[in-house]
Each structure stands twice: as C-alpha cells, then as structure tokens.
Design a protein around this nucleic acid. Structure first.
Length: 892
DNA sequence: CACTCCCGCCAATTA
DNA sequence: TAATTGGCGGGAGTG
C-alpha cells in the first residue's frame, strides 16, 4: 500500500497529477494544478476518493496535519511517519527522490509502525478530546485514510470501535462526526449497566443453581449455558424479528467492542484475559467453539484492544495463572462515572452532546421504535442509532434495518453482558469450563454478579421504577406509570410522555410511590429497600451512577450505609437513562427510554453530585453487589441466617462479594458498605407466605433492614425502603431469588426449598424464565408514624434532592400493568400502602428506618427487635397484604 | 512456538 | 450496478 501511495504521491508531481485530476475531475478542481487557479480546496471534499481529493485533503489538512505528522515522526518512529508524512511532504517537497522507494522500504519497518494502535493514535491526534459542542467535526473517511496513509479498511476498524463508544457517529456515507470524549463516561456507564444487567439475568436464571454450585463447588456450567442461551436467543430473535437481525452486523466489531468494554466494567478486577473475552463473545452457547472461530475472535479482540489502548482505556498486561501466563488487558479508564452525571447535568438535560440532529434522530427513532424497544437501555446504547437515524432521517422509518439492528444490538449487548457474566462466573465458579481461567481474582468478581441483576430477559422489559411517592400519586398504571420517578423528575421529566414512554401500554413501570420493579416475564427482581431521604438523595446519585441500583438495592446492602445510600438506585438497565434523563426532560424520548429501561433515573442532578462520598459507595456499586450480599449478612444476622438459610450462599457470596476488594477502587466506599453490612441490622426481608388475600403472592419483607439497606439502587428514587417484595407465589418457587440474606425468617418459612435457598442467597436473582411477572414494591414507609401527607412528598419528588424520602408512600395504589411492554404479561403492581409513614424527614428517618421497615410500629425499635418481631412482621405482612390491593393479577 | 495482528479478499449493504 | 462497509482468516512479524 505504502508503495502505492507513494506512487500516488509521486504522481503528485504536478505533471502526473494533472492528468489524473483531469480524468477524475470530480468537481473538485485540482488544487494542485497550478494551472487552474480555481478554488482549490473547498470543493474537494465532496468527492471521495479521487486522488485529487486526497490532495485536497492534504492541503486542507495540511498545515495542521503536517505538523502533527512531524511531531509524530519525532515522537514515533520515523518510519511510518516518514511514510505518511512523505506523501504530503513529497508534495510539498516534492521531489521525492527516486530512491524514495528504497527509502521506503528501508523505513518500512515494522509492523509496529503500521499497527492499528499507532494508526489510531494518529487518528485521535487529529481531533480534540473535548471538542466544543458548537463545532461539529466531520470526518471524511477518504480524507483520513489518505492523510494517514492507510487503506480505508483500517479506518473502518478504528471508527467502528470509536463508534461503539460514541466518540464518533456516522453521519453519512464516508462521513463520520467526531464527538470526542464528552459522552464517554455516559457511554461507559451505560455499558456498565447493561453489563450488569445481563449478568443479573444470568445470575438469576442460573443462579439458584449456581449459588448452590458455588457453595458446593459443583459445576453447573451446563445448566448455565442453557440459560444463557436463552436470553441471547431471545434477544436476538425478538430483535431479529424486526430486521434480519442477525446479519453480519451482529457480529460486528462495534458490538464486540461494546461487549468487550462491558466485560471490563463488570469485572471487579478490571482485568480481562483475551481468551475469556473471546469465549464470552462467542455467543455460542456452547463451549465448543471452534478453534478457528476462537482464533478469529481473538484477532478481532486484538484489533479492538489496540484501539482501546490508544484511547487510554486499557493496557496490556499478563495474567499468570496456573496454566501459565495469558495475555490480558486491564481497564485503566474510569471506573466510576460520577463525572458523567456532572457532565450530564452540566450539559444539560439534553444529555447528549450529540448534535441536535442526532437527537432528533434519536427521538424519531425511539418513537418509531417504541414498539420495539424493549429496554431503555437500548436506546441509550444505541446512540449509534441516532446516527443511523440521522442518515435516514428523511425516511426515518423505523424499519430500516439498521435501526432495528441497532436495537437489536442493544438488546443483544445486554444479553451479552449477561452472558459474559455468566461465563465469568462460570469460569470462576467452575473451572470446569475449560477456559476458564479467570483472572486471578476474577472469581471473586464473579461473585458479585449475583446481585446485579436485572432482568432482562430478552425482550421483556423490566421496568423498574422507582417512584417517588409524592410525585405521582399513583399513577395509573398505564401511561402514567411511566412517569418516572419523580424524584428524578427533574430530570426525567415528567414523564411523560408519551407514547414513547410507554411502550405500548403502559408498560410497566413503576408505580408511583413506591418503587416497584416489575419484571415481566422472566424476571427477577430485586428489592430494595430503604429509602432515604436525604441521604438518599445524595447518595443516590452516586449509586445511581453506578447503576448498581438494583443490585445494590437488592443487596440490601446498603444498610449502614444505607442511610447514606439509601438512595440506591434501582437498578435497572435503564441506567443509561439516567444519563439521558436530562435529555429526557428535553425530550420525551428519553423518557420513553427510561421506562423501557429499567433503570432508574437518578435523581436529579443534585444528588448525584453530592454524592461523592456516597458515591464512592456507588462506585463500589459494582462491588457493592457483592457487598450487598455481605451487607445482607450482617454479621450477626449472617450467622443466624446462615443457619437458617441454607446457605451460606449468602455468606459466601458476601464474602465473595468482598472481592470487591479486588476492585479496590473505591475502597472507602466499599468499606463502608461492608461496615454497614457488618452492622447488625441487616436482615432484610422476610418472606411471607401468602396468605389469605394474596394467596398468589409471596411477600418478602425486609426484616430489619434498614431501609437503607435495602434501598434500591435507584438513586433517584427515593429510596425505598423496601419493604416487601411480592412475588407471585408461583413465581417464587421458580425464583431463586430473593431474599435477604440475613433473614431467614423463621417466620416465613419459605415453602419452597428453593425459595429458601434463594433467600439465603440474598438476592441473587435468577432470572427466570418464568413468565410470570413479578413485582416488587417497596414500601417506603418507614415509620409507622407517619406523617403524612403525601402532599409533602409530592413536593419532594419534585426535588430530587429530597428524594423521596420517604417514600412513604403510603398510599399504595395498585397498579396494574399489562404486559409490560415487552412481554405482554400482564402484571400487576401492588402498591402497598403503608401507613403513613414516612414522615420522617429524611434524615431523621434513617435510623428509624432501618428498623422500621417492616416493622410495625412497635417493632420499630431495634433491629433486634425486628428479628424478634418476626412475628410481627408476619403480621405486618398480613396486614399489608390486606392492604394491598391488587387491581388485577395477571400474572399468570 | 506462541503472540500479535496486518493485509486484503470478498460478501453484505448501501447508494 | 457500483461503491461502501466490514467479516474473516491467512499468514507474516516479533519475541
């Protein structure tokens, strides 16, 4: 190639060029030709590729580029530079020597010079990391290719990866728009959330078994795979439906890149070995993986890794395992994404830096897509979509393959993430797999998985919604439901919206006051508890950021921290939403997205920021996951739990979770969390058998939990204290989940063994295939006392900051959902009314909170009391149940 | 020999 | 149909 280029270059000599130019002429006047004085430069771009164009490019770029090149040369090896630069240089200097060729050859050196990583650096050097929003930088593939002296194919490799991180977006044929790193954190956050979700699913589904396995050391790989497969398939299929989906793009470098990044973000150790990544990325269910396929995947991963390395997000490392040392990459990019929030906020609600056009596109897209979209996440993910949309603009048809594709992709990604987790887990868990290997610590990391989760079933949607009480009083389900959380509201906007927002009917979503999670089909749930008021708010943000939300919440972890954290976010896939939220405000679209996605919006801006400290926790969020568990198991509680529950799982998990250590990063937070965990309170939920009214439902209540503990991840949301979770009985059996660790309530005996088991696990959720939707609501209520009125609350919602503290929510309204978007399963949400409650001011509440949760008034007191209260709890539950109104139960 | 990963064929997509 | 994209895997460079 180089040679060719050279030759071209040579041609550049006026003479040669002229002819060429003439022939091509494209409209551009040959700059070069001295002859025509015509405007040289401007025109050129339009046309792609002619040599002329290149020249033009060169010229235009010239000064800057030249400089860069020179710099590079110095910096880098002369060699390449020389080549590249040569071209240009030649022009100028022209003369290239005859001998040049020889020189080239000489210079030629190594591949290194030609490496994609180096090429990428050059590419990146041409654009500012943080371009002014105002200016849009367009990238012409031809131009860049010529400037950098490489073939286009290589540029595609780079651009595809950059596109996966939304550093660039495709505007049109041969044209990309440079966005810079403004959105990088958001993108990463999204990916992280997505990854977690997936895991969650995986976890859920597999989990029960896995948990057990873990304990036992059994290997369940087999099972796992199945589960994995499903999800994947589901995704793909549904998605596919729309389009041919699978087409090649599914395999695309772009998607692989996102998945790859997800692995890092999900990994506690932040180190991913190539082989593991390759395995995970090979969607195939089986392990079988052809060797050839594996090799190909690895090649691609190297390509991606080179680009990511150039971006400074990862670095190459070697992991030595028993077997020996394996090539691996370590994530050196941002782990937490608080910034994002800031940025977001800063940026605005709009959220994306993307140009308005894109947004518009997106919006359109969403709208059109609504039906399709399953998860909010997707949308977020898909920023890329916008680009497509943009292209299509006009047509804006939803159908366009690409869009669909993207959507699909998103979903897939999610799935993938899940898969990855599974794999990881598997690996860790079982080494059986062969591969395995997990990173050293990976195991630990694996552990974490459990919590996360979210549902995600393929299509299904989940919705999690946290609601602030106040805000919505209730929403009716349908449409309103969407509205998200109020708390978030600010950002979120009011929900609104429309169509988009809901997908079809109101999909599920949240219930107003309480946060609920709905999972349609398979799903899982988490619970979260606590709410917290103030704290939350602050904390929330952080947590929210993390996206851990659900997991965390579930984890219940929070506890001590809880208070702080109380805000947890709900996890949901939607995380992205958070980011978007702002945007959402602006546009409904996002909202819609939100709904879709599980994610809970973070709270308004404020909180997040505040959080830092708490945030740290958040950061740990991931970690938290594991932690949750830990938390869950409070020390004391743990013991008890252990006994009661089978399991240790919880404990183990928790321990594992400890792994977080590995994570380290936010140590402080983590610790905190741990500490919290340690705290006595932990207990979390009680399972109540169904009784009378609800026969069908099972409730879990948090036992001790401090509200915080349970709190949902959702940041924004007010925390919920989660009081309980309802699960359809049937579902329960199937689900592993649930549960709080600590608790085992004697009371609640879980009917099903499985269940109990689950309980022990803490929340691991399993995703279930089950169709039945499950909901969990938490009640905010905290103290029995209450205050009351919601009115106040409502206000809160408005302010995110407030958070809802209280959630209270007392009122509970029941909401029904019909099949949530995705699925169709109808779901019913119940809101619990709690008695008033909440009234606490947020802060004040906390303490009480914890205990209070479920407690009945009397119980409030100490955690211990709680335990004692079990009985009470049950009662409560019953009472609750009574109170609960179910509009309809659809589940199945 | 194991890693890396460049190179470019050629199919899928687009225009 | 032509051009653009981009999957894919041979096989070369490195250590």
């Amino acid at each position: 190639e180089n040679i060719l280029d050279r030759s071209r270059m040579a041609p550049k000599t006026p003479i040669k060029n002229e002819p060429i130019d003439l022939s091509k002429q494209k409209g551009c006047t040959p700059e070069r030709n001295p002859i025509t004085p015509v405007k040289i430069i401007d025109r050129p771009q339009p046309d792609p590729w002619t040599p002329t164009a290149n020249l033009k490019m060169l010229v235009s770029a010239a000064s800057p580029d030249m400089r860069d090149r020179e710099k590079k040369k110095e910096l880098f090896r002369p060699i390449e530079n020389s080549e590249q630069s040569d071209t240009p240089d030649s022009l100028q200097y022209d003369i290239v020597d005859d001998s040049t060729v020889d020189e080239f050859e000489k210079q030629r050196p190594s591949r290194k010079q030609k490496s994609l990583g180096l090429l990428c650096q050059k590419f990146l050097a041409r654009y500012p990391n943080y371009p002014l929003s105002t200016e849009k930088t367009t990238i012409s593939l031809d131009e860049v290719a010529s400037i950098l002296g490489v073939e286009r194919r290589r540029i595609y490799d780079i651009v595809n990866v950059l596109e996966s991180l939304q550093l660039v977006s495709r505007v049109a044929k041969n044209q990309y728009c440079w966005h810079g790193r403004h959105n990088l954190n958001q993108t990463l956050k999204m990916l992280q959330e997505a990854g977690e979700l997936q895991y969650g699913e995986l976890m859920t589904s597999q989990h029960k078994e896995q948990d057990l396995e873990y304990k036992f050391g059994e290997q369940k790989k087999e099972t796992i795979p199945d589960s994995q497969d499903r999800p994947l398939l589901e995704f793909s299929e549904p998605d596919c439906i729309s389009a041919s989906a699978n087409s090649r793009k599914d395999k695309s470098l772009r998607i692989m890149s996102q998945k790859f990044v997800m692995l890092f973000l999900v990994s506690k150790t932040k180190i991913v070995t190539l082989d593991i990544a390759a395995k995970i990325l090979i969607e195939e269910t089986q392990d079988t993986v052809d060797h050839s396929k594996f090799k190909t995947k690895v090649r691609r991963l190297y390509d991606i890794a080179n680009v990511l390395t150039s971006l400074g997000l990862i670095k190459k490392v070697h992991v030595t395992e028993e077997r020996g040392r394996k090539p691996a990459f370590k994530w050196i990019g941002p782990v937490e994404f608080p910034e994002k929030t800031d940025e977001l906020r800063g940026h605005s609600p709009t959220s994306d830096p993307l140009p308005g056009t894109q947004r518009g596109a997106r919006a359109q897209y969403q709208t059109s897509a609504t039906g399709k979209q399953r998860f909010t996440r997707h949308a977020s993910f898909n920023r890329a979509q916008p680009r497509e949309a943009a292209r299509r603009k006009v047509s804006s048809e939803p159908n366009s393959p690409r869009q669909e594709r993207q959507d699909e992709n998103c979903s897939k990604m999610i799935n993938l993430a899940a898969v990855c987790r599974q794999k990881i887990e598997e690996d860790t868990g079982n080494k059986a797999c062969d591969t395995e290997k997990i990173l050293n610590s990976s195991k630990n990391s694996n552990i974490t998985l459990p919590f996360s989760l979210l549902p995600v079933p393929g299509d299904s949607d989940f919705c999690v919604n946290p609601l602030p009480q106040a805000v919505f009083p209730v929403v009716q389900t349908d449409v309103p439901s969407f509205s998200l959380p109020i708390g978030m509201s600010s950002q979120a906007s009011h929900p609104s919206t429309p169509a988009a927002s809901k997908t079809e009917n109101g999909k599920p979503t949240l219930v107003p006051n309480q946060p609920f999670l709905c999972f349609p089909s398979s799903s899982l749930f988490m619970l979260c508890g606590g709410l917290q008021e103030n704290n939350l708010s602050e904390t929330l943000p952080t947590s929210g950021d993390m996206g851990h939300r659900s997991a965390e919440a579930q984890a219940a972890v929070p506890p001590a921290g809880c208070q702080k954290r109380s805000s947890h976010k709900c996890s949901s896939p939607s995380a992205p939403i958070d980011d978007e939220e702002p945007a959402a405000k602006k546009q409904t679209l996002e909202q819609s997205d939100l709904p879709l996605s599980l994610v809970i919006p973070k709270k308004p801006s404020e909180s997040p920021k505040a959080e830092p400290p708490p945030g740290s926790g958040c950061s740990s969020a991931v970690h938290l996951e594991t932690n949750h568990l830990d938390l869950a198991n409070p020390p004391a509680a743990e013991a008890a739990n252990k006994e009661s529950t089978k399991p240790l799982d919880c404990q183990e998990q928790g321990k594992q979770s400890q792994n977080k250590d590995t994570d380290e990063p936010p140590p402080g937070n983590e610790h905190i969390s741990k500490e919290n965990a340690d705290q006595p309170f932990q207990p979390q939920y009680f399972y109540v058998q169904p009784t009378a009214g609800l026969s069908s439902f099972n409730f879990l209540f948090s036992a001790n939990q401090a509200p915080g503990a349970i709190s949902l991840a959702a940041n924004q949301l007010p925390s919920l204290s989660v009081p309980c979770v309802m699960v359809p009985s049937a579902a329960v059996a199937s689900f592993p989940l649930v549960c709080s660790p600590s608790f085992t309530s004697p009371l609640s005996p879980v009917p099903d063994g499985s269940f109990s088991a689950a309980a022990s696990t803490s929340f691991s959720m399993s995703s279930l295939a089950s169709t039945t939707p499950v909901f969990i609501s938490t009640t905010a209520v905290v103290t029995p006392k209450v205050s009351p009125t919601p009115s106040g609350d409502p206000q809160q919602p408005a302010h995110p900051a407030l958070h809802l503290s209280p959630v209270l929510t007392r009122s509970c309204s029941a909401v029904k959902l019909d099949s949530p978007v995705c699925m169709g399963h109808p779901v019913t949400l119940l809101k619990l009314q709690q008695p008033s409650s909440a009234p606490l001011t947020p802060k004040s509440i906390r303490p009480a909170h914890h205990e209070a949760f479920f407690k009945t008034p009397g119980s409030l007191g100490d955690p211990v009391a709680w335990k004692k209260n079990e009985g009470n709890q049950t009662r409560n539950a019953s009472s609750v149940q009574r109170r609960l109104e179910i509009s309809s139960t659809s589940p199945d």
